[in-house]
Design a protein around this nucleic acid. Structure first.
Length: 642
RNA sequence: GCCAAUGUGGCGCAACGGUAGCGCAUCUGAUUUGUAAUCAGGCGGUUGCAGGUUCAAAUCCUGUCAUUGGCUCCA
């Protein structure tokens, strides 16, 4: 796109060549508000144009190759796709077709599913439209006129109906296709240089699962073919990092149809990593004044009724009945529910004894394995499973301690995320429509979260109405090595549980008060976090976390004895070591260790056996020469134990 | 749960109406290797499952289960 796009105060856009002047722009606008606003500022090029004009009016300048220009390109691509669909399926109904990250989509209804052949035909038709350089033109109509023009487009009519009848509606037309649209768009279809239709999917109209499912066609669009190729290459690279692929290659976990959907089984390497992560976090939590507890996996249904989960989440929990009568010919059925979270256990522990204000804050943590009957369509490897382990904690504290506790949680989050080289951002979610509790409590809790973020120097965005039903929360989103974001940590303030379970403590003046309760998880789900780590590091976990840290590689069979001696010494020093004693050339063993992404390889041959040394090869740095075995072990202990 | 696509030896793939083939891995033998893959031979599948069409089905149809990509959901 060689044009600068100027979006005028009325929302319409003009494209001018790079290097155009403000006078050129004024000439293109004709009479009207914008021209008046530009009066007296006609000197210079568009680059000199200030976006704030007279009387509060402003223009937006979109330069070539900017993110805004890319969005225009993609939005136009959606219109071009819609035009192609209309030509191929004249009776198609159109929903919405926006630009999205990396591309665009359009929701349509052609009375049947969209097949791969259809997609190919649509892509080919788009190429024709692009080749014909059909101009985009804008015009404005009243809602009534729009209704008339869109008379056979029931989905569009629905959109028009939702706008106030006084709204001026803008329409964009290219070729024979007209769409309701705010714009702006490309000057003509030939500017769509590089695009590809990527996938189809069903999507509910207006995102409402009670309504009709439309067919969604996704595409991606870029300024140049080179950009498109680079994008497709990026996708391939991301696929190679897929934790499900690497999880298999590295022997982390498996799934088995016999076990059930969304229930991973951890292989030795996976178990090692998970236990290492837990042990590391456990040490950090003890240092920070947390106490570990262990609570049941199942509870009598009465507990879930009291907490409200029995009613709120019944379909997403696993309930079962047990006959508890030990006498014959009698039955006494009890209902139990498998825990979908760890809160009730910690609440019961709190209520076990009379608490004093001096006891607070009380911080209970647990690696609690929970089960949630997630919809079959949402399970995804370790990232969304039906069984997973939370690094869960509940902090019971006085009102004046809430903010300090939140700050210290944020500090812990920072320590953990920094360890894994994640950058992260925060969102504060406020009261949803469907929620419980008094306004002043919500307000107090939300203010505490905001104040804690500010004290900690963490900027945040507000996610209006996205809190839990019982309280507001801070969500932490981490950004991985290839720029994707993942939701991990969460801090939630809760006043529902303390109320429902009558939690109290004795105050300094010997009265009774209700504690505040914080829920927090740092990893969120340990297995999910492991999945993210695998993708973040492309399977090459940091040495301290690697399931196997060292491969001892004997050059020939006669070096096996020494290799096992080295292995035993490493194991004695708590280094996770294996011997590659297969009857294979050393080079082949090295290749295998490299592919297993082991951090260290110790090559031992005649020379090493004679002088009791090891030749060290690092996974990334390569061969770094021989050193005495004791030296390597001493260094390894520092390096491999975080 | 909804829409679509896909299920072939442990893993990755081929055959797409004429009763399954390759690579890796595994096993056996040879080889004894100095920093990313030594050679040879062998084993292994009634093509997710259940029906149907056909002289003939991995291949076509129906159902079902699972996986994948989306949608909705995620306490």
């Amino acid at each position: 796109m060689a044009e600068i796009t100027v979006i005028l105060p009325d929302g319409s856009a003009r494209q001018l060549p790079e290097g155009a002047t403000i006078a050129d722009l004024a000439a293109r606008i004709g009479a009207g508000l914008a021209k008046a606003a530009l009066a007296g500022k006609l000197d210079g090029t568009l680059a000199d144009l200030t976006t704030e004009l007279k009387d509060g009016a402003h223009v937006e300048i979109i330069t070539p190759k900017s993110p805004e220009a890319l969005e225009i390109l993609r939005h136009s691509a959606a219109h071009i796709m819609a035009e192609a669909i209309q030509e191929l399926f004249p009776r198609a109904q159109f929903g919405i077709g926006p630009a999205i990250e990396d591309g665009f989509y359009y929701d349509i209804d052609i009375g049947r599913p969209v097949t791969p052949d259809d997609v190919e035909a649509i892509g080919a038709k788009m190429a024709e439209i692009v080749a014909e350089a059909r101009a985009f033109s804008r015009r404005e109509v009243t809602a009534a006129e729009a209704r008339e023009l869109m008379a056979d487009q029931r989905l569009k009519l629905e959109l028009i109906d939702e706008m106030p009848s006084s709204t001026v509606i803008s329409l964009y037309t290219q070729g024979g296709f007209t769409d309701l649209c705010r714009g702006p768009h490309l000057p003509d279809t030939s500017r769509l240089a590089a695009f590809k239709l990527t996938k189809t999917a069903g999507a509910y109209w207006r995102g409402d699962n009670q309504r009709q499912m439309l067919q969604r066609i996704y595409g991606t669009a870029w300024f140049t073919q080179k950009d498109l190729d680079a994008y497709l290459h990026r996708l391939e690279e991301a696929e190679k990092r897929d934790h499900r692929v690497l999880g298999r290659q590295l022997g982390i976990y498996m799934m088995d149809e016999q076990a059930g959907v969304g229930l991973p089984l951890y292989l030795p390497a996976g178990a090692r990593v998970i236990r290492t992560l837990q042990e590391w976090l456990r040490r950090g939590l003890y240092q920070r004044g947390y106490e570990e507890v262990i609570t049941p996996h199942i509870y009598n249904a009465e507990v879930w009724k009291r907490s409200g989960h029995y009613y709120f989440y019944h379909d997403n929990m696993y309930f079962f009945e047990v006959d508890e009568s030990e006498a014959k010919n009698r039955s006494k059925l009890s209902e139990y529910g498998v825990k979908p979270m760890n809160c009730p256990g910690h609440v019961l522990l709190y209520a076990n004894e009379l608490r004093s204000y001096r006891d607070l804050p009380l911080r209970f943590f647990e690696f609690g394995t929970v089960y949630r009957h997630e919809l079959s369509g949402v399970v995804h490897g370790l990232l969304r499973a039906r069984g997973f382990t939370q690094d869960d904690a509940h902090i019971f504290c006085r009102e004046d301690q809430v903010q300090d506790e939140v700050v210290s949680i944020l500090e812990l989050v920072d320590y953990i995320m920094t360890t894994f080289e994640f950058t992260y951002s925060a969102e504060i979610s406020t009261r949803p429509d469907k929620s419980i509790g008094e306004d002043d409590k919500w307000e107090f809790a939300t203010e505490q979260l905001k104040a804690a973020c500010e004290r900690h120097g963490l900027s945040y965005e507000i996610n209006e109405g996205d809190g839990a039903f019982y309280g507001p929360k801070i969500d932490i989103k981490v950004k991985d090595a290839i720029g994707r974001t993942w939701q991990c940590s969460t801090v939630q303030i809760d006043f529902n549980f303390p109320e429902r379970f009558d939690l109290t403590y004795r105050t300094a003046d010997n009265s009774t008060a209700q504690p505040w309760m914080l829920h927090r998880a740092i990893f969120g789900s340990i297995e999910r976090f492991l999945g993210i780590l695998i993708e973040h590091y492309a399977g090459a976990l940091p040495a301290w976390l690697a399931p196997v840290q060292v491969a001892v590689i004997p050059i020939a069979d006669r070096h096996n004895d020494y290799a096992f001696e080295v292995d035993a010494a490493l194991r004695a020093a708590e280094v996770r070591s294996v011997v590659y004693d297969q009857n294979e050339p050393m080079r082949s063993k090295i290749a295998k260790a490299q592919m297993a992404k082991l951090p260290y390889m110790l090559v031992v041959g005649d020379k090493e056996a004679a002088e009791r040394s090891v030749s060290v090869r690092e996974r990334l740095a390569g061969d770094s020469g021989a050193q005495p075995l004791e030296d390597f072990i001493a260094a390894a202990q520092n390096l491999l134990n975080n």
